[in-house]
């Protein structure tokens, strides 16, 4: 199942996951929960390696909405990493953020966009921005590696300084396309 990931040349040049990790550090994020995505591989590794962060693997994405609420009740900040298919799992749990006004920062790697090779990813990927909007989550877009620092900082500030629910949607063009070719 492990397919090759082909990246754009700008993504090779700029370490955008490290830029997101720095934005999380700048906003004093201490709990980072995730359901893995290939596009989040490096950021997950950076969070696990960071002694100032608790990296929390989840069995399903909505667990991270509850974790973030509990973290905030205890005075800590939490971010939630997932791919776009996981957004569908979160919908009812997002009522926790909207009903109580909990800050929420979701980092969502997009599937079902340009170059997608798995047609089953297209449905949820295409519905993701609208589903988030309907659930009361503001969306921001990250399209190019060189914008990662500015966009991630904007998203993190919106979540924790304005105390709102924010999802940063990370373009499939940036993360690369899973090719489904065997490694040789």
């Amino acid at each position: 199942m492990q397919g090759k990931i082909s990246k754009s040349s700008s993504a090779e040049a700029i370490d955008w996951p490290a830029a997101i990790h720095r934005a999380l550090k700048a906003q004093r994020v201490r709990q980072v929960s995730y359901v893995p995505d290939a596009g989040h591989k490096r950021l997950i590794e950076l969070c696990h390696a960071d002694k100032g962060m608790a990296a929390v693997p989840l069995t399903t994405e909505e667990e991270g909405i509850g974790l973030a609420a509990g973290a905030w009740l205890g005075g800590e900040r939490s971010a939630l990493l997932m791919q776009s298919s996981g957004v569908g799992n979160c919908i009812n749990a997002l009522s926790l953020a909207s009903s109580c006004g909990f800050p929420l920062l979701m980092l969502v790697t997009m599937r079902g966009e340009t170059g997608e090779r798995n047609p089953w990813q297209v449905s949820m990927g295409q519905a993701t921005p609208e589903a988030l909007r309907l659930a009361g989550v503001r969306t921001l877009r990250l399209e190019r590696a060189e914008e990662a620092s500015a966009v991630a900082n904007t998203a993190a500030k919106a979540a924790f300084e304005e105390q709102s629910a924010v999802a940063l949607l990370i373009s499939q063009q940036l993360i690369g396309v899973k090719s489904f070719e065997e490694k040789r």
Binding site: I65, L67, G70, A71, L73, G74
Partner: peptide, 11 residues
């Protein structure tokens, strides 16, 4: 339970 976990890790 997950709210409890976030709180327990924070405190």
């Amino acid at each position: 339970c997950m709210i409890g976990l976030g709180l327990a890790l924070a405190k």
